[in-house]
């Protein structure tokens, strides 16, 4: 039961005491790392944009892509799907 009690303690820590939903809580806040683009090698294909489950990647005016910090959950799909390895996941602090 050790493992499950540890798990429970963790879950109790993240319970919402106020009424309502989890809407106002930015899920991007607990990610570990954030993608970073190496502009020199990017061919502007848009694969990173299309596979982001949280629609966090957006196109800049010059055709390159960047991430919206508030939305990204740090899953790393953009990093693993870009064929040229343009995106690296950089740990935050």
């Amino acid at each position: 039961m050790e493992a499950s009690s540890g798990f429970l303690k963790k879950m109790i820590k993240c319970s919402l005491i106020e009424e309502g939903t989890a809407k106002p809580y930015k899920s991007g806040a607990h990610r570990k790392s954030l993608p970073e683009w190496d502009r020199d090698r990017c061919i502007k294909c848009g694969v990173c944009y299309i596979y982001c489950p949280d629609a966090a990647v957006y196109r800049l005016d010059d055709g390159f892509f960047d991430v919206e910090n508030q939305k990204c959950k740090g899953c790393g799909i953009c990093h693993s799907e870009c064929w040229f390895g343009v995106i690296s996941m950089v740990e935050e602090r």
Binding site: C45, P53, A55, K73, G76
Partner: peptide, 20 residues
């Protein structure tokens, strides 16, 4: 992918989906 409409209707702020 650049030919897809870029309008997003999906609001990730409104879901608590896990990463990935």
């Amino acid at each position: 992918p650049n030919f897809l409409p870029c309008r997003e209707y999906f609001d990730p702020g409104n879901n608590n989906a896990c990463p990935g």
